[in-house]
Computed example of a mutant assay.
Amino acid sequence: MRNCRAPRLRLICFPHAGGSAGFFRSWAALVPDDVELLAVRYPGREDRFAEPPAQRMEELAEPIAEACAKLAGGPLVFFGHSMGASVAFEVAARLSAAPVAAGLEALFVSGRPGPEKVRSRNLADASDEELVEELLAMSGTNAEVFANPELRELFLPLIRADYRLIDAYKVTLPPPTLAVPVVAYYGDQDEHVDEDEVNAWSAVTRSSFATRSFPGGHFYLEQHAAPLVADLFARVGTNGPRPDQD
């Protein structure tokens, strides 16, 4: 999404359920010049549209971990929002367990309870009307998509598949799994995650942990992308991660 010839750092972003790599396109103008911005393309969307969506977390996390392990020329930092937070954690856990370290420096998660607090919402089996109502209420989906019958028919099965995956998701590696700093972000009006659930992310790391809230709901980052990205890089800094920043 934003290439860099000799990156000091690579920021890899993991989209939410039903989301695509393009969700993070606007971040290209916000990251420092010496940082390479990458975003994960899940199967079933964008240039992988012909592929069936993943049925299990392992189908997502394992190939992504393999791809990340092959990256060279700078440390990695992960940012995942909502479902993407769980995917980023699972990828980070696999990299941490690998015989050769892949250079992960920090994990930033957003809008998602810690693994021990995740609760099933059974949205995969909701009616079309209920599912659309839920998606529009979270403000993470363009309303025009569901006003168009053809686009609605195209995207709802994909979104259902993602919800089915996260409803079935269980932590596969016992915490504390990671040895890198973890920072958890959330919207202070998010009905799907509260402060206690956000703090549960502290259990996944043996390193430092911090949280920060922003005004807004589940998709607070749409309105606060600039301060969010600025906070992320203030914590990473130029001499390594500092996620314990207030």
Rank of each mutant, 00 (worst) to 15 (best):
C4N: 00
A6V: 15
R10A: 05
L11V: 08
I12Y: 07
I12D: 03
F14Q: 01
F14S: 02
P15Q: 01
P15R: 00
H16L: 02
A17T: 07
S20R: 13
A21Y: 07
F24Y: 15
R25Q: 08
S26E: 09
A29R: 14
L30E: 14
V31K: 01
V35D: 09
V40M: 01
V40P: 00
V40F: 00
R41D: 01
Y42G: 05
P43Q: 07
D47V: 02
F49R: 14
E51S: 11
P52L: 10
Q55T: 13
R56L: 03
R56E: 14
M57C: 10
L60A: 04
A61M: 01
E62H: 03
P63C: 08
I64W: 00
A65T: 02
E66Y: 01
C68Q: 07
L71A: 06
G73M: 07
G74P: 07
P75C: 04
H81C: 12
S82T: 08
M83T: 06
G84Y: 01
S86V: 15
V87D: 01
V87A: 10
F89P: 08
F89W: 12
F89V: 07
E90W: 06
L95N: 04
S96P: 02
A97C: 10
P99V: 04
V100Y: 02
V100K: 14
A102M: 07
E105P: 01
S110Q: 13
S110N: 11
G111A: 14
G111Y: 08
G114H: 12
P115H: 09
R121I: 13
N122A: 15
N122L: 10
D125A: 15
A126R: 14
S127K: 10
S127R: 08
L131K: 07
V132T: 03
A137L: 14
M138Q: 14
S139G: 06
G140P: 07
A147D: 15
L151N: 03
L151S: 03
L151R: 11
R152A: 13
L158W: 00
A161Y: 02
D162H: 04
D162Y: 04
L173N: 09
P174F: 02
P175R: 01
P176R: 12
T177Q: 12
V180L: 01
P181K: 11
V182A: 09
Y186L: 03
Q189H: 05
Q189C: 02
D190R: 06
D190Y: 04
E191C: 12
H192P: 01
V193R: 10
V193K: 09
V193M: 11
S202P: 01
T211K: 03
P215E: 03
G216L: 07
Y220W: 12
Y220P: 08
L221W: 12
A230L: 12
D231A: 13
R235V: 04
P241A: 15
Q245W: 12
Q245P: 00
